[in-house]
Design a protein around this nucleic acid. Structure first.
Lengths: 219, 219
DNA sequence: CCAGGGGGACGTACACCGTACGTACAAGGG
DNA sequence: CCCTTGTACGTACGGTGTACGTCCCCCTGG
């Protein structure tokens, strides 16, 4: 019999989540999928919670960051942000477990280091860099949840053509008018829209801070 | 014996969630808190899932939107966004269940209608209004999750002074340098930072679109 | 006033969950 | 050789959601 491994268990867990959803996951199911006794899992994993932590870490560590030091800094943060969105594509059902548990392993620190470095190199102060990073993280997480379909988008993510039209047009005139737009959502387009908004915002903020510095230096 | 009510059950559920966390919730606990048999609950609620839906709807419907039609539109969207952040304050533990299930009741449509109306009045086109709304929702949801402490903030939300300092300063120079900033997080400040960023961004976008329209009209 | 019926409260029962505990067996060191 | 160590495993306990059957109270028709 091939030996059981923590990695195999985590892989089976991810596989199960992607096949049947995060709710369907249980130690018994994982063991059954591996053709193994339930309690054998506990020789490699202390409990279910840390197994899910491992799932989150594994998924997160598989996102690929390609950084081009030659590129404009705005483009670099854009690329880094997009990298996170990959999660929702490669592991849609697992995204929720990634998001729903704060992990403490250094796996999550690499992206942070990279993002902060990019922002500092662009010229942002430490405080701004941290706040901007938090803003982007919040936006990305929220977008991930929308894409996975778990978030109250207020515009149902799927097959909404049945639900939207039946709203009272006198109570909700805007919703009624914009129903065709609310009913469909190209996640890529939506993500890029907000991402571009944020990037342009910090771009002008950087220019403003530079020019005000220049003024005070001149004054 | 006072009659059991759906509203009482929902209230007890919210109370339990806030006292002991979303994981601790179970039909048996709720029944016990109400001094009632477990199965009595099912006379008023079809199952646990729809009970949690009702919890989400109740919490969401309690956020108070105060809209001042006299105010600048930028201030109005700011206030509407802040209203959502109230959830994390009034019902911190329940926020996760609100976020984690997309609700279909009209309770969630009122804020959407209000937001879209504000944006349309400001001068945005329908498509932009919808995309902007989605961007703000994503940001707000992400911020909510950070505030509740469930999100991988990459900067642990609580008592991080133990964890942050022990990162390898040569591997993570930026994280090491900015550790004091990453270690603490004033959620209000962080939320306002990103919110201001987004609002300024859509403000300049609106001006740009207006001036380009003016140009094309002139040209 | 009484009979009947309907609805709510309840207890039991089942399938499933996470996991603590005790056992059996294979591999390596004295 | 024995003995230790580590892994696989079965059993068992307390928990979960909920389907089902029973009981009782109250409300209505006669």
């Amino acid at each position: 019999m091939p030996p059981l491994t923590r990695a195999k268990i985590v892989a089976a867990a991810i596989d199960l989540i992607e096949r049947e959803g995060a709710d369907a996951i249980s130690m018994r199911r994982i063991a059954a999928d591996l053709g193994v006794g339930v309690m054998s899992l506990y020789n490699h994993v202390p409990n279910k919670a840390t197994l899910l932590d491992a799932v989150a870490e594994t998924v997160l560590s598989q996102i690929s960051f390609t950084d081009d030091p030659e590129a404009e800094w705005t483009e670099r943060v854009r690329i880094q942000a997009r990298a996170f969105r990959q999660i929702a594509h490669h592991y849609p059902r697992s995204t929720m477990v990634v998001v729903s548990r704060q992990l403490k392993s250094p796996a999550g620190l690499f992206p942070v280091e990279r993002a902060l470095a990019t922002l500092r190199e662009a010229g942002f102060g430490g405080e701004d860099a941290v706040q901007i990073l938090r803003t982007f993280i919040a936006y990305i997480i929220g977008s991930l949840l929308r894409e996975v379909g778990v978030t109250p988008t207020f515009a149902p993510v799927h097959r909404s053509d049945v639900h939207l039209p039946d709203v009272d047009a006198t109570l909700f005139p805007e919703v009624g008018t914009l129903a065709p737009l609310l009913g469909v959502c190209d996640h890529e387009e939506a993500f890029e829209y907000g991402l571009d908004l944020l990037i342009r915002a910090i771009d002008v903020q950087l220019r403003d801070s530079r020019s005000s510095k220049g003024e005070s230096a001149r004054g």
